[in-house]
């Protein structure tokens, strides 16, 4: 997909629900994508780890400002690899990743991993300060921003707790806060909620929607969960089995996110569409 193809309409899929409900046509329309608002531009990307292991091939993807894009795909298809390439933690074998409009400065990209990866020897507050310490911020400024970020993720009062005193969900919130405190322009999350229980996960999904939408944060989100992807995203991109290529993508037609959304027919159908794409990607 290139920039001038950006405005397009996604095909209409017809899907037979496995719960046996009536089949509905789902019309998914893209929001208007403008080339000057593109923040991540991936072109003909290939990543090969060895002769036999080609993780990614022919990836083209644009993400525009304020957009929340999810990447779903089977395990081992190269989602984490793609995220790392976007973060420049690794380099492509061929093709390239451009990040127009994202400052080439520390702190402009925030990365959140599958597990919280907190420092057990630091309190919650000091964990959130960790990345700020690398930048030359004053102690007061660090303190203020960390406190703010913790309030943002609903962890007031836990500043002095140690990670081992927190639940898995709370740890993940600290991890989010640690990255949000940077005020990143681009937010990359690699299966951040994979290890959490359903309820906690849904709660954090709501928080994440709130956090990203309120600040118009450009977000690339990797997940295994179709419903999570659909719930969170403006757009879901489906990646095929290794070597990972983009099977298809779908724009999500909802404006409001609320728990009840998951029960609507539209939501279920959208999920079904994505699942269908996933199956296509695995049969190739």
């Amino acid at each position: 997909m290139t920039a001038n193809q950006a405005a397009h309409t996604v095909d209409i899929f017809i899907y037979e629900s496995n719960v046996g409900h009536a089949i509905e046509k789902v019309v998914v329309t893209d929001s208007d994508i403008r080339s000057d608002r593109i923040r991540v531009a991936i072109r003909d990307l290939e990543k090969r780890f060895s002769k036999d292991v080609v993780a990614l091939r022919g990836i083209n993807l644009d993400v525009q400002e304020g957009e929340f894009v999810s990447l779903v795909g089977p395990s081992g298809c190269g989602k984490s690899t793609l995220l790392k390439l976007v973060a420049e933690l690794d380099y492509p074998t061929s093709g390239n990743v451009a990040r127009p409009g994202i400052a080439d400065l520390p702190g402009s990209i925030g990365f959140v991993f599958q597990d919280a990866h907190l420092l057990p020897w630091r309190t919650v507050h000091r964990n959130v300060e960790l990345l700020l310490e690398i930048q030359n911020l004053s102690v007061n400024e660090r303190h203020r921003r960390a406190k703010e970020a913790l309030a943002h993720v609903g962890l007031e009062g836990f500043e002095d707790a140690y990670p081992r005193q927190l639940s898995g969900g709370m740890k993940m919130r600290v991890s989010l806060a640690r990255t949000l405190v940077l005020n990143p322009q681009l937010f990359l999350l690699d299966e951040p909620f994979g290890a959490l229980d359903e309820i906690t996960r849904e709660k954090l999904n709501d928080d994440l929607v709130e956090l990203t939408r309120s600040s118009g944060l450009t977000t690339l989100f990797v997940t295994h969960s179709v419903s999570e992807a659909v719930y969170l995203s403006n757009r879901v991109v489906v990646i095929s089995d290794r070597p990972g290529t983009i099977v298809d993508e779908i724009s999500v037609p909802f404006n409001e996110r609320h728990r009840s959304l998951r029960n609507t027919q539209e939501f279920v159908n959208t999920c079904a569409v994505v699942t269908e794409m996933l199956y296509r990607g695995m049969e190739k």
Partner: peptide, 26 residues
Amino acid sequence: DPALIDLLRMQGAGRAAIFRKIRLPN
């Protein structure tokens, strides 16, 4: 934790900072 090292590198941390903040306490 390699992820932590990645995280710090991304923020422009050098070897010394990574040593001080991660390796040594770890």
